[in-house]
Amino acid sequence: MDIKDIIKPENKVYGKSPVLTDNIMHYCPGCSHGTVHKLIAEVIDEMGIQDKTIGISPVGCSVFAYNYLDIDWQQAAHGRAPALATATKRLCPDKYVFTYQGDGDLASIGTAEIIHACNRGENIVVIFINNAIYGMTGGQMAPTTLLGQVTATTPYGRRADLNGFPLKITELIAQLEGTCYVTRQSVQNAASARKTKKAIRKAFENSAMNKGTSFVEVVCTCNSNWKLSPVKANQWMVENMFPFYPLGDMKDR
Protein backbone atom coordinates (compact mmCIF):
# COMPACT_ATOMS: atom_id res chain seq x y z
CA MET A 1 0.00 0.00 0.00
CA ASP A 2 1.34 3.38 -0.98
CA ILE A 3 1.91 5.99 1.74
CA LYS A 4 -0.17 8.45 -0.26
CA ASP A 5 -3.17 6.16 0.19
CA ILE A 6 -2.68 6.14 3.96
CA ILE A 7 -2.16 9.89 4.42
CA LYS A 8 -5.75 10.97 3.85
CA PRO A 9 -7.96 13.03 6.18
CA GLU A 10 -10.29 10.07 6.81
CA ASN A 11 -7.35 7.99 8.07
CA LYS A 12 -6.05 10.57 10.54
CA VAL A 13 -5.86 9.09 14.04
CA TYR A 14 -3.79 11.66 15.88
CA GLY A 15 -2.86 15.28 15.30
CA LYS A 16 -2.19 18.57 16.97
CA SER A 17 -4.98 19.61 19.32
CA PRO A 18 -7.06 22.55 18.06
CA VAL A 19 -6.61 24.15 21.49
CA LEU A 20 -2.88 24.49 20.79
CA THR A 21 -1.90 27.64 18.89
CA ASP A 22 0.37 27.54 15.83
CA ASN A 23 3.20 29.29 17.67
CA ILE A 24 6.51 27.45 17.72
CA MET A 25 7.30 26.66 21.34
CA HIS A 26 10.32 28.47 22.77
CA TYR A 27 11.22 25.41 24.84
CA CYS A 28 14.46 23.51 24.27
CA PRO A 29 14.26 20.40 22.07
CA GLY A 30 12.74 17.54 24.05
CA CYS A 31 11.46 19.71 26.90
CA SER A 32 8.62 18.06 28.82
CA HIS A 33 6.68 21.34 29.06
CA GLY A 34 5.50 20.93 25.49
CA THR A 35 4.20 17.43 26.16
CA VAL A 36 2.27 18.52 29.24
CA HIS A 37 0.89 21.58 27.40
CA LYS A 38 -0.37 19.26 24.71
CA LEU A 39 -2.08 16.95 27.20
CA ILE A 40 -3.86 19.87 28.86
CA ALA A 41 -4.94 21.16 25.45
CA GLU A 42 -6.33 17.75 24.54
CA VAL A 43 -8.29 17.52 27.81
CA ILE A 44 -9.73 21.03 27.30
CA ASP A 45 -10.68 20.13 23.74
CA GLU A 46 -12.21 16.77 24.62
CA MET A 47 -14.21 18.26 27.50
CA GLY A 48 -15.33 21.13 25.26
CA ILE A 49 -14.36 23.76 27.83
CA GLN A 50 -12.10 26.09 25.85
CA ASP A 51 -14.44 29.03 26.49
CA LYS A 52 -14.69 28.20 30.20
CA THR A 53 -11.04 27.63 31.04
CA ILE A 54 -8.69 30.21 32.50
CA GLY A 55 -5.03 29.31 32.82
CA ILE A 56 -2.54 30.92 35.18
CA SER A 57 1.06 30.82 34.09
CA PRO A 58 4.00 31.09 36.48
CA VAL A 59 7.40 32.69 36.39
CA GLY A 60 9.91 30.28 34.93
CA CYS A 61 10.28 28.67 31.52
CA SER A 62 6.51 28.18 31.24
CA VAL A 63 5.81 31.88 31.80
CA PHE A 64 4.92 31.90 28.09
CA ALA A 65 2.45 29.01 28.32
CA TYR A 66 -0.13 31.57 27.18
CA ASN A 67 1.46 31.59 23.75
CA TYR A 68 0.64 27.92 23.22
CA LEU A 69 -2.79 27.16 24.68
CA ASP A 70 -5.54 29.11 22.96
CA ILE A 71 -7.49 30.09 26.08
CA ASP A 72 -7.64 33.17 28.32
CA TRP A 73 -4.57 33.46 30.54
CA GLN A 74 -3.27 35.38 33.51
CA GLN A 75 0.47 35.59 34.04
CA ALA A 76 1.27 35.59 37.75
CA ALA A 77 4.10 36.98 39.83
CA HIS A 78 6.61 34.33 40.90
CA GLY A 79 4.90 31.75 43.11
CA ARG A 80 1.59 33.57 43.37
CA ALA A 81 -0.46 31.64 40.80
CA PRO A 82 -2.59 29.85 43.45
CA ALA A 83 -3.66 33.23 44.87
CA LEU A 84 -4.75 34.39 41.41
CA ALA A 85 -6.54 31.10 40.86
CA THR A 86 -8.30 31.37 44.23
CA ALA A 87 -9.85 34.72 43.40
CA THR A 88 -10.58 33.78 39.80
CA LYS A 89 -12.44 30.62 40.75
CA ARG A 90 -14.34 32.23 43.63
CA LEU A 91 -15.40 35.18 41.49
CA CYS A 92 -16.12 33.07 38.38
CA PRO A 93 -17.33 29.73 39.80
CA ASP A 94 -18.53 28.54 36.38
CA LYS A 95 -14.98 28.58 35.02
CA TYR A 96 -12.33 25.86 35.01
CA VAL A 97 -9.26 27.45 36.57
CA PHE A 98 -5.84 25.88 36.56
CA THR A 99 -2.36 26.94 37.55
CA TYR A 100 0.72 25.68 35.74
CA GLN A 101 3.78 25.95 37.95
CA GLY A 102 7.33 24.71 38.08
CA ASP A 103 9.21 23.47 41.14
CA GLY A 104 10.86 26.80 41.94
CA ASP A 105 7.60 28.68 41.55
CA LEU A 106 5.42 26.24 43.48
CA ALA A 107 7.72 24.60 46.00
CA SER A 108 10.10 27.45 46.84
CA ILE A 109 8.93 31.04 46.51
CA GLY A 110 5.25 30.12 46.32
CA THR A 111 5.10 27.59 49.16
CA ALA A 112 2.70 29.65 51.27
CA GLU A 113 0.31 30.28 48.38
CA ILE A 114 0.10 26.65 47.25
CA ILE A 115 -0.26 25.23 50.76
CA HIS A 116 -3.04 27.63 51.69
CA ALA A 117 -4.93 27.38 48.40
CA CYS A 118 -4.87 23.58 48.71
CA ASN A 119 -5.77 23.74 52.39
CA ARG A 120 -8.77 25.95 51.67
CA GLY A 121 -9.79 23.37 49.12
CA GLU A 122 -10.09 25.85 46.28
CA ASN A 123 -11.85 24.15 43.36
CA ILE A 124 -8.90 24.58 41.06
CA VAL A 125 -6.48 22.35 39.20
CA VAL A 126 -2.77 22.59 39.90
CA ILE A 127 -0.33 21.25 37.33
CA PHE A 128 3.08 21.00 39.00
CA ILE A 129 6.12 20.46 36.79
CA ASN A 130 8.97 18.99 38.82
CA ASN A 131 12.25 18.76 36.95
CA ALA A 132 14.45 19.27 40.00
CA ILE A 133 16.13 22.39 38.69
CA TYR A 134 15.56 26.05 37.79
CA GLY A 135 15.20 26.17 34.02
CA MET A 136 14.82 29.75 32.89
CA THR A 137 17.50 31.27 35.10
CA GLY A 138 20.04 28.71 33.93
CA GLY A 139 20.06 25.55 36.01
CA GLN A 140 20.31 26.57 39.66
CA MET A 141 19.28 24.35 42.59
CA ALA A 142 15.54 23.90 43.04
CA PRO A 143 13.78 22.85 46.25
CA THR A 144 13.30 19.47 44.58
CA THR A 145 16.93 19.02 43.44
CA LEU A 146 18.13 15.58 44.49
CA LEU A 147 20.97 15.07 46.96
CA GLY A 148 24.19 14.86 45.00
CA GLN A 149 22.65 16.49 41.94
CA VAL A 150 24.92 19.01 40.25
CA THR A 151 23.41 22.40 39.46
CA ALA A 152 24.79 25.88 38.84
CA THR A 153 24.49 26.69 42.55
CA THR A 154 25.46 23.21 43.78
CA PRO A 155 28.45 22.72 41.48
CA TYR A 156 29.76 19.85 43.64
CA GLY A 157 26.35 18.28 44.10
CA ARG A 158 23.56 19.08 46.56
CA ARG A 159 24.59 18.42 50.15
CA ALA A 160 22.04 18.10 52.92
CA ASP A 161 24.28 19.89 55.42
CA LEU A 162 24.79 22.85 53.10
CA ASN A 163 21.62 22.99 51.05
CA GLY A 164 18.99 21.08 52.98
CA PHE A 165 16.93 18.21 51.67
CA PRO A 166 14.87 17.85 48.49
CA LEU A 167 11.28 18.78 49.23
CA LYS A 168 8.53 16.24 48.62
CA ILE A 169 5.89 18.92 48.46
CA THR A 170 3.32 16.69 46.79
CA GLU A 171 3.39 14.35 49.79
CA LEU A 172 2.79 17.41 51.98
CA ILE A 173 -0.09 18.58 49.79
CA ALA A 174 -1.69 15.13 50.00
CA GLN A 175 -1.99 15.58 53.79
CA LEU A 176 -4.18 18.66 53.42
CA GLU A 177 -7.91 18.24 53.98
CA GLY A 178 -8.72 20.59 51.11
CA THR A 179 -7.26 18.40 48.38
CA CYS A 180 -9.40 15.71 46.76
CA TYR A 181 -6.95 14.31 44.23
CA VAL A 182 -3.18 14.29 44.48
CA THR A 183 -1.11 12.33 42.03
CA ARG A 184 2.40 12.11 40.61
CA GLN A 185 2.83 11.25 36.95
CA SER A 186 5.38 11.53 34.13
CA VAL A 187 5.50 11.89 30.35
CA GLN A 188 8.67 10.11 29.23
CA ASN A 189 6.83 7.56 27.07
CA ALA A 190 3.44 7.15 25.44
CA ALA A 191 2.00 5.01 28.23
CA SER A 192 2.99 7.49 30.93
CA ALA A 193 1.77 10.44 28.87
CA ARG A 194 -1.62 8.77 28.42
CA LYS A 195 -1.83 8.16 32.17
CA THR A 196 -0.97 11.79 32.85
CA LYS A 197 -3.67 12.91 30.47
CA LYS A 198 -6.20 10.79 32.36
CA ALA A 199 -5.03 12.37 35.61
CA ILE A 200 -5.41 15.87 34.17
CA ARG A 201 -8.88 15.01 32.91
CA LYS A 202 -9.90 13.71 36.32
CA ALA A 203 -8.55 16.88 37.93
CA PHE A 204 -10.62 19.10 35.63
CA GLU A 205 -13.72 16.98 36.22
CA ASN A 206 -13.20 17.24 39.99
CA SER A 207 -13.14 21.00 39.75
CA ALA A 208 -16.56 20.98 38.05
CA MET A 209 -17.89 18.85 40.89
CA ASN A 210 -16.52 21.24 43.56
CA LYS A 211 -14.63 18.44 45.26
CA GLY A 212 -11.67 20.56 46.31
CA THR A 213 -8.19 21.06 44.93
CA SER A 214 -6.77 18.58 42.43
CA PHE A 215 -3.00 18.49 42.29
CA VAL A 216 -1.15 16.77 39.45
CA GLU A 217 2.63 16.62 39.72
CA VAL A 218 4.43 15.66 36.55
CA VAL A 219 8.02 14.54 37.06
CA CYS A 220 9.81 16.04 34.07
CA THR A 221 13.21 16.51 32.50
CA CYS A 222 15.25 19.62 31.92
CA ASN A 223 17.75 18.11 29.54
CA SER A 224 19.50 21.42 28.77
CA ASN A 225 20.29 22.19 32.39
CA TRP A 226 20.88 18.55 33.28
CA LYS A 227 23.34 18.66 30.38
CA LEU A 228 22.03 15.46 28.81
CA SER A 229 20.40 14.66 25.48
CA PRO A 230 16.57 14.55 25.60
CA VAL A 231 16.55 10.76 25.42
CA LYS A 232 19.33 10.35 28.01
CA ALA A 233 17.55 12.84 30.27
CA ASN A 234 14.47 10.62 30.24
CA GLN A 235 16.66 7.67 31.28
CA TRP A 236 18.28 9.72 34.06
CA MET A 237 14.84 10.73 35.31
CA VAL A 238 13.64 7.12 35.44
CA GLU A 239 16.79 5.97 37.23
CA ASN A 240 17.27 8.87 39.66
CA MET A 241 14.05 10.80 40.12
CA PHE A 242 11.48 8.02 40.24
CA PRO A 243 13.04 6.27 43.27
CA PHE A 244 12.80 9.51 45.29
CA TYR A 245 9.60 10.79 43.66
CA PRO A 246 7.61 7.57 43.15
CA LEU A 247 4.75 7.77 40.64
CA GLY A 248 1.10 7.11 41.41
CA ASP A 249 -1.95 8.49 43.17
CA MET A 250 -1.43 9.71 46.73
CA LYS A 251 -5.05 10.63 47.26
CA ASP A 252 -8.24 10.16 45.27
CA ARG A 253 -11.56 10.77 46.94
Binding site: A77, R80, A83, L84, A85, T86, L91, A112, E113
Partner: peptide, 9 residues
Protein backbone atom coordinates in the same frame (compact mmCIF):
# COMPACT_ATOMS: atom_id res chain seq x y z
CA UNK B 1 1.22 38.97 49.44
CA UNK B 2 -1.59 36.59 48.66
CA UNK B 3 -4.26 39.25 49.11
CA UNK B 4 -2.80 41.52 46.45
CA UNK B 5 -2.28 38.61 44.07
CA UNK B 6 -5.90 37.60 44.62
CA UNK B 7 -6.72 41.10 43.42
CA UNK B 8 -4.61 40.41 40.32
CA UNK B 9 -6.63 37.26 39.65
Amino acid sequence: TSSINMLYG
